[in-house]
Each structure stands twice: as structure tokens, then as C-alpha cells.
Design a protein around this nucleic acid. Structure first.
Length: 609
RNA sequence: UGGGGAUUAGUGUAACGGUAGCACAACUGAUUCUGGCUCAGUUAGUAAAGGUUCAAAUCCUUUAUCCCCAGCCA
């Protein structure tokens, strides 16, 4: 259905009418794939469908972020939809920046996202650019032999000076040196006979090109550094432009998908492969580079350099700080991979640069968690309520629904007693008109328990409410409506609030996250993200009160694939149990991260007033 | 200044010469033992100007605005 011939040209993005909600989404990339299929450009499977082989090629020099997830999802999705393959490839051509730690984290994150490169229908495997160094060297020497590359002894600084301007060509005094000399020097470069930076191998293209990428770009530089994969085997390393097309070629990649800033590199990508193929009997595979607009999201900074800085400067607690836009940050915060995938699907893939509202990511998360997260009651900012007409020492257990979205999840028992906690937000001494919660003289429903009415409050010397006195109506047991009065009038209650029995409450630390930046486009105004940091991005609640069922793993809890327990704390938001928790300690030490709050229309009303 | 791209409601995204649609946001209302979810509805768009055509978001011309490019980073 991906080509959607049943609805016009049908290459539209979005769900195909008449298909299940999780039906594949198509993009302009699918158009290209289907056109290639018609032209049999890359060959076909037995059933006539076009061959598709994609890859995700991160450099292991940092952690993956939400922007990468767009690339991962689109590459994996394209392969999956077209019965193709998807490779994970480490583009490890710069030993100065790359580390094993990043390799491990990237593998973990790509897998978590669901782009399984090792198992499953689209698994293509794990590859390394560094495994191709020998082949790349051979091809480079081939270009030297053909007079298409030369060794240049200009220093980096000199190259920069001689780069020229749009109207002034670049220059290099080494451009026309004899082929034999370049052959010898390139060999010497490899053999380590020259120090770092002494010379480079350059492609001989066009020093006057208005596209600076074609002004004899560097193919190899000397770097006397140990590589995390090849160790000391090499002291020359290929540049991205030279390496990437060869990597794609060797892996049989059909569609080499990258971001828009590489558009100016495409002529170079093609020039390199064509030059290798020049007068070659057996041509090497030439994959097609296609660019798309990278993901940008409001209030989020997505640049590896800056993320690294935030980690190193201690602005956040690490790469997986729940406030970080890294994949591991979102995971720790409680986001599900399903919701990130849904988000990527939602924003689509185009060549138009856009800025996505962070709310759409939050919505995707709420959407998924609403369906699957077990409900619990938790009071984040507790204030004590005494129910004066409820017998001292008595405990009742009420059945509370585990997930109104999923009846099969059943219900659990929640203990109730004379003293309970409610959230401070759910009481107002002088409420405005539309306040439906507890206030002096008004009545609310305690979820799954009783209706209570406020009959008095106590305050400390500073005027803070320390205690709320209430009475309950025994006829509302289980939260049910009481029978109609003698006049036949059904008494009603506008609000239902959550609560936790004081004697049974489990203490927990709750971490409330806000956006890391105060402005939609961090660092845009001053060029320095530090100016835009939100100092209140983390609020820690030390003594939240949670219903006791939280200590056991409930029958209603899903078998979370990543092992992270997630809940909806009713009327508050979605929360995930953090790895800092010590559930087996006595008493248990629980730490919850607020993944995302529930939508709060009351807050909106209150803000307006 | 040279080259390469982009431009459809507030934000994204469809429509590939033939009815400008969808999602999210916003706003109404209904429903509700979560001010959640759900449901119903409303608002709102082809950057501008010319041209070709029976017909233009789509083709042509000009203009405007935005993004990318002068690393031995990727």
C-alpha cells in the first residue's frame, strides 16, 4: 500500500485511508524508491519490488539525540516498508574525536528505538568505515595514478589563505607535480615518514569552482593518532567526502540519505565514485545521495558540540540527564520508543526546513502512555486532611480502576483511613468561580473513595495551611453518587481529586523537569546557549506520597521492553521510576522522573484570570 | 558579492495542470469518578507581481525572504 495507487497519485504523507492506524507512512523518499523500482535502477526482488538498502552512519563522537532518531526512523522505515535492509555504520574516520563509549551507547540507543540492525526482517548488520581503510587507500592511489589526485604540502593555514573567494580561484603550487612524485609521497604518508599535518592528498578537480567543496578537496590527512578500532595501523585518515561514498558503495547502499547541509557535497560524492570508475572494467556501485531537512524542535538544542559542553560543564548531570534531548535522556525520562517513532512519523520527511513545536513530541508521549500506563495515585505537594466523622483506626480498601483506556487491566485495592494527603493545588481558601476542587464549605469526590466536605482549616504562623478538616458522606462509598434527596434532587459534585492514606503512604523523591531553555531557539539571540538556560529546569520534590501498591509490581503493569516502570499519577502526569531508586532498601527509596505532565486546562483557565 | 536549496492556515504536512485536504495548536460545546481520554463543531492558508492555459499551489519570468557553503570536522 505504500505507493497508494488507490488514492490518486497517493504519495502523500500520512496514514492511508482504510488502513490501520499503524499503516506505513510515505514520504518523498518513497516516491524516489518507487520510481527507481520502475526503472529497475537497483535491481529487483523476485516479486518485482525494488531493492532498497539504507544505512544510519553516525560518527562515534557523541551520544545520539532526538534529531538522529528522525534519520534512524526514516532510514529503517524505508528499508522495512520496501523489504530492504538497514545497516548501522560507524563513520569512524577521525580518531581524534571517537571513543568506544560512544559506540556502545549508539548501538544501545538505535536498538532501543526499534531500528534493529542485527535481527529481524530489515537487519543489515553493523559496519565500520575503518574496516574499509585499505580499500580506500587503494582507490586513492588509483586516483593518483590517473592524475586525479596529488599530494599537497601546503599547511592547513596556507590552504585556508589560498582558498580564494567566489570570484577568485584557489591556488596550490603542488597541483601539477609529476604523478610519480605524488605516488611516492602518498606512500610515504601512509608509512609514517611525515609528521601530522605535513601534507595531504588532494583531489584534482577545479580550483575555480563556485562550489568550494570542489576546490581540490582534501582526501587524506596525516594524523599520528591511535584509532579506537584500527589501533596504530594507520597514520593517514580519509576525509568524510572521500570515505562516505566508498562506504556506501562497498555496502551496496542504494539510497544514501543525509541532511540538507550535504547538498553542496553531492557533486563531490558523485565525482569521487565516477573517478574511481573511470576506465575501470568492473565499475563499483554508485549509490544515490538524497538530502532531507534535519529535525529542529523548539526549546531544544541539538548540536553535538553544545550537548558535549553541557555535559562537561556540569549544566546537566550527564548524557542521560532526563532534561537532555539525547535518546538516552528521553529514555531515562520515561519516553517510550513507540512515542518517539510516532513523533518522527508525525513530523514527516521533506526538504523544507522547519521548526517543530516541542508540544508535538510531548503529545506523542502522552498519546502512547495514556493507552498503556497503569494509573496510580500520588500526592506531590501533600497537605493533610482529617476526616472528622470517620472512625479513628478504621481502614477500608477501595477498588480503583487501573486504566480506563483498557478494561482488561482490571483494578487494584487502595487503603483509605481517617487521615489522608491531598495536593495543595486541590484546595483554595478563596476559590475563583470555576474552581471545582476543595474549598471551605464545598464538596468534592475523593477518587474511588468518598465525597468529602471541607469544614475548617488550620494554619501556621506564616499563614500556610497545615491541616484541612473535612466530613465524609457514608452514602457515597466507593465514590458513587448518593441516593437522591427527599425532594428527588440528585446532589452533584463538580470535582474529583486524588488522595493517599497518610498511614499507608510510601514516600518518594520526584524530579520535575522543565525545559532546559527559556527561549524557542536557544543560542539564536546571542550565539551562546548559556544566555538562554532555564535555571529552574529541575525541581526536586523530596517527600511525595504514593499509594502503597507502588511497592509491588502490579499485575496491570506492562512488560516494558526496556525494563523501565512507567505510571500515570492520576491528574498529574506520567512518571517513570528512575535508576537511582533502591526499591529493595528498607525503607524503599523510590525516585520518579516526571516524563510529561497531563494536559491541564485548569491551569490555562487560571492563567487567564 | 558567487554557488546550492527552500517558501501551502499559528505549527507541520498533502495535493505531481482539474473540488486546496489532514494532523497538532487555538477557540466553542458534549461527555466523564482524571479540568486527562473521547466525541461534535468553529477559526484560519498557496510569499509577491506578471505571464502561459478552458483551467495554475503545480508550468514560465521577475522580485522578496529564509537556510547551507571558503575545516587537514562529519
Amino acid at each position: 500500500m505504500r505507493h497508494g495507487h488507490s488514492h490518486g497519485h497517493g504519495h502523500g504523507h500520512g496514514h492511508v485511508p482504510g488502513q490501520p492506524a499503524d499503516a506505513p507512512t510515505t514520504t518523498f523518499l518513497d516516491d524516489i524508491v518507487s520510481r527507481d523500482g520502475e526503472l529497475k535502477r537497483w535491481g529487483t526482488h523476485a516479486d518485482g519490488t525494488a531493492k532498497v538498502h539504507t544505512r544510519f552512519p553516525p560518527e562515534p563522537n557523541g551520544y545520539l539525540h532526538i534529531g538522529h532518531s528522525k534519520s534512524i526512523c526514516l532510514n529503517y522505515g524505508l528499508a522495512l516498508r520496501n523489504k530492504g535492509k538497514f545497516n548501522l555504520r560507524f563513520d569512524d574516520t577521525n580518531p581524534a574525536k571517537e571513543e568506544q563509549e560512544y559506540v556502545d551507547a549508539i548501538k544501545r540507543d538505535v536498538k532501543w528505538l526499534g531500528a534493529d540492525f542485527e535481527n529481524g526482517p530489515a537487519a543489515g548488520g553493523v559496519f565500520w568505515a575503518s574496516d574499509y581503510f585499505e580499500k580506500m587507500y587503494d582507490y586513492a592511489m588509483d586516483l593518483v595514478n590517473k592524475g586525479l589526485a596529488y599530494v599537497c604540502e601546503l599547511s592547513g593555514e596556507e590552504v585556508s589563505k589560498r582558498r580564494g573567494t567566489p570570484s577568485v580561484p584557489a591556488t596550490s603550487p603542488f597541483r601539477d607535480r609529476p604523478i610519480a612524485e605524488s605516488q611516492r609521497l602518498f606512500k610515504e604518508m601512509r608509512e609514517g615518514k611525515h609528521p601530522t599535518g605535513a601534507m595531504t592528498l588532494r583531489a584534482k578537480i577545479d580550483l575555480a569552482s563556485p562550489n568550494f567543496n570542489l576546490r581540490d578537496p582534501v582526501m587524506y590527512r596525516i594524523l599520528h593518532e591511535e584509532h579506537h578500532n584500527t589501533g596504530k595501523a594507520w597514520c593517514i585518515y580519509p576525509m568524510y567526502d572521500w570515505a562516505h561514498g566508498i562506504e556506501d558503495s562497498l555496502e551496496g547502499i542504494t539510497h544514501s540519505i543525509c541532511t540538507l547541509e550535504f547538498e553542496n557535497h553531492r557533486p563531490l560524492y558523485d565525482w569521487f565514485i565516477n573517478s574511481i570508475n573511470q576506465s575501470r572494467a568492473e565499475k563499483i556501485h554508485h549509490s544515490q545521495q538524497i538530502e532531507f531537512a534535519k529535525l529542529q524542535i523548539t526549546y531544544i538544542l541539538l548540536s553535538k558540540r553544545n550537548l558535549l559542553k553541557m555535559v562537561q560543564s556540569g549544566t546537566v548531570r550527564g548524557w542521560d540527564d532526563p532534561r537532555m534531548p539525547t535518546i538516552c535522556g528521553f529514555r531515562r525520562r520515561g519516553y517510550t520508543s513507540e512515542s518517539i517513532r510516532a513523533f518522527c512519523d508525525d513530523v514527516g520527511v521533506t526538504r523544507t526546513e522547519s521548526l517543530i513545536d516541542i508540544g508535538r513530541l510531548e503529545n506523542a508521549c502522552r498519546d502512547h502512555l495514556n493507552k498503556v500506563a497503569p494509573r496510580r495515585m500520588a500526592v506531590l505537594d501533600p497537605v493533610k486532611v482529617v476526616i472528622e466523622n470517620y472512625p479513628e483506626g478504621q481502614v477500608e480498601e477501595f477498588e480503583a480502576v487501573n486504566n480506563p483506556e483498557d478494561e482488561s487491566k482490571g483494578s487494584r485495592l487502595v487503603p483509605f483511613s481517617r487521615e489522608i494527603f491531598i495536593d495543595r493545588d486541590d484546595f483554595m481558601e478563596n476559590p475563583p468561580k470555576k474552581f471545582f476542587r476543595l474549598a471551605p464549605g464545598t464538596e468534592v469526590r475523593l477518587r474511588a473513595a468518598y465525597w468529602i466536605k471541607c469544614v475548617g482549616i488550620e494554619k501556621d504562623a506564616n499563614g500556610n495551611i497545615t491541616l484541612i478538616r473535612c466530613t465524609y458522606d457514608a452514602a457515597t462509598r466507593g465514590g458513587e453518587n448518593p441516593p437522591p434527596g427527599p425532594d428527588g434532587v440528585q446532589r452533584k459534585v463538580k470535582g474529583t481529586i486524588h488522595w493517599v492514606s497518610a498511614a499507608h503512604a510510601v514516600n518518594a523523591e520526584v524530579r520535575l523537569f522543565d525545559r532546559l531553555f527559556k527561549v524557542e531557539e536557544p543560542s539564536k539571540a546571542t550565539g551562546n546557549y548559556v544566555d538562554d538556560l532555564n535555571p529552574d529546569a529541575l525541581k526536586v520534590v523530596a517527600n511525595a506520597k504514593i499509594e502503597p501498591s507502588i511497592l509491588q509490581i502490579g499485575k496491570d503493569e506492562p512488560a516494558w521492553a526496556d525494563g523501565i516502570r512507567r505510571f500515570q499519577f492520576e491528574r498529574t502526569g506520567y512518571f517513570a521510576l528512575d535508576a537511582d531508586s533502591k526499591p529493595d532498601a528498607k525503607p524503599a527509596a523510590l525516585v520518579f522522573n516526571r516524563t510529561v505532565s497531563l494536559k491541564d486546562t485548569w491551569a490555562k483557565i487560571a492563567d487567564k484570570a
